[in-house]
Amino acid sequence: MTTVNMTVNGKKVSADVAPNTLLVQFIRENLRLTGTHVGCDTSQCGACTVHVDGDSVKSCTMLAVQADGAEVTTIEGLAKNGELHPMQAAFKENHGLQCGFCTPGMIMSAVDLVKRNPNPSEETIRTELEGNICRCTGYHNIVKSVKAAAENMGG
């Protein structure tokens, strides 16, 4: 077992984990934050996307021990004081989801996308969301949601 310390959604956490514990397992099973989903478990679908030190990563393709000392944000950490994050609000407003399984990862990727590209074109959004797969929407309303959120976030 290895001791890991990290800050998750602003809260310091510490645990002893086996080195082969994935970050997503740690988040879901140790911390009981089940908003982060496991979709494909093969690094393709992006449902498990969280932020590690501000960057979007696939938490099924990172060990918990690699996040030792890091700041981690999951979908549960986006809303502040009961107010949805502008990206969450935009997905709700623009019907950017159907079954909702990919949505946490899609939103975490989209927040990082807008951070890097404050005023993204439709093409940029589609390219930058390459690492997130949605099997319901055909992406149209997801792209619309991200564009609307970017505008609301002052892009």
């Binding site: 690094s43 590690v52 979007s56 990563v57 996308l113 690492g131």
Partner: peptide, 9 residues
Amino acid sequence: IGDAQVRNR
């Protein structure tokens, strides 16, 4: 290379 999340790691 790959996608944004892969490039971040």
